[in-house]
């Protein structure tokens, strides 16, 4: 037998949802403690996954540990189902777990996301799995894990307030626009992952369970449904979200998060829904924005 055929024969087939059962148990235990201590980052022995660290390995490990054959999975990146990394992760689960996938927010039982929370209100029974690059909200103020762990232990979050206040003093604004820190159930300051702060209010008292996986940093945390999630702010500088002056150019939606799309090299641009499913469903219902003529539809 040649070396090549020996290897072809010898490479093992993978378990359901890729991870071995022992790894799933370890992650499941971490998820349960995360739910029991909302906002606290549970250390876990993150595994190498067949996609790079930083590309959603934490979210993928969480999803792989909870998903079952009856689930319907949606994966979004930047709010869109068709961004390359979302496509890649969705295809991974379709292959290793043979589950149904969807782009419809309402149909999904598990939604894995990077950088957005869907516009459609999530419901009881849905699970939102966030991919998290840097789970530690204090990391950029204090690079040492030994120090930040103490701060969480003592609920000593003065440093974070000082940082936000310095922003105000210097710029007249809190200059944090995404990954805006929240306090969970009055105890732990938590990083919501790099979602725009526009999405922060959706985390508060959500009907859905929110799970967060940081693979490279080896942390899992959670926000149970119906849990207080409050964005940090000051009495004289209350938290506020971004507002867009114009509605979505395709579906005409107001009060949603928009992507800026450059149309030409002369400064022409348009704003469209970042949540592609939300936008498509609105258009299917007949809503139109100012750039969504029939010609437009035909071109797509």
């Amino acid at each position: 037998m040649t070396l090549e055929t020996e290897i072809e024969d010898g490479l093992a087939s993978y378990n359901f949802a890729y991870l071995d059962e022992q790894t799933k148990r370890m992650i499941r235990r971490a998820i349960l403690k995360g739910i029991a201590i909302p906002g606290y980052q549970v250390p876990f022995a993150s595994r190498e996954m067949p996609m790079p660290y930083g590309w959603g390995t934490g979210g993928v490990q969480v999803t792989a540990s909870i998903i079952g054959p009856d689930d319907t999975l949606k994966v979004i990146d930047q709010g869109a189902d068709d961004t390359t990394n979302a496509v890649s992760i969705r295809a991974f689960f379709a292959k290793v777990a043979d589950v149904e996938t969807t782009t419809r927010t309402g149909e999904a039982t598990i939604i894995q996301t990077r950088h957005r929370i869907p516009e459609e209100k999530l419901t009881e029974g849905q699970i939102l799995v966030y991919q998290v690059p840097i789970p530690e909200p204090l990391r950029f103020l204090e690079p040492r894990e030994t120090e930040t762990r103490k701060m969480h232990a003592l609920a000593e979050y003065g440093l974070m307030h000082v940082k936000l206040y310095e922003d105000i003093a210097r710029n007249g604004h809190i200059a944090t626009t995404y990954a805006y820190p929240v306090k969970v159930e009055g105890r732990y300051v938590m990083d919501p992952s790099p979602t725009p702060k526009f999405d922060n209010p959706k985390m508060h008292m959500s009907d859905a369970l929110q799970l967060f996986g940081a693979g490279r940093e080896k942390r899992i945390y959670a926000v149970p449904p119906h849990t207080n999630v409050v964005s940090l702010d000051f009495e004289d500088y209350p938290f506020e979200i971004q507002t867009f002056e114009e509605p979505c150019a395709l579906c005409g939606a107001h009060g949603v998060y928009l992507d800026e799309v450059i149309l030409d090299d002369r400064g022409g641009r348009m704003f469209v829904c970042s949540d592609t499913d939300f936008c498509e469903e609105r258009r299917a219902e007949g809503h139109r924005g100012h750039l969504s003529g029939e010609a437009m539809e035909a071109a797509e």
Binding site: P52, Q78, T84, N85, R114
Partner: peptide, 29 residues
């Protein structure tokens, strides 16, 4: 290096949602 290369290289993934948030702030300021 598996962790390092992953995280350095993840910067090429789309970040336009966060970037939009920053654009908005810089324009306002």
């Amino acid at each position: 290096n598996v962790q390092a290369t992953g995280f350095v290289e993840h910067l090429k993934l789309p970040h336009y949602v966060d970037f939009q948030a920053e654009l908005d702030l810089v324009r306002r300021m």
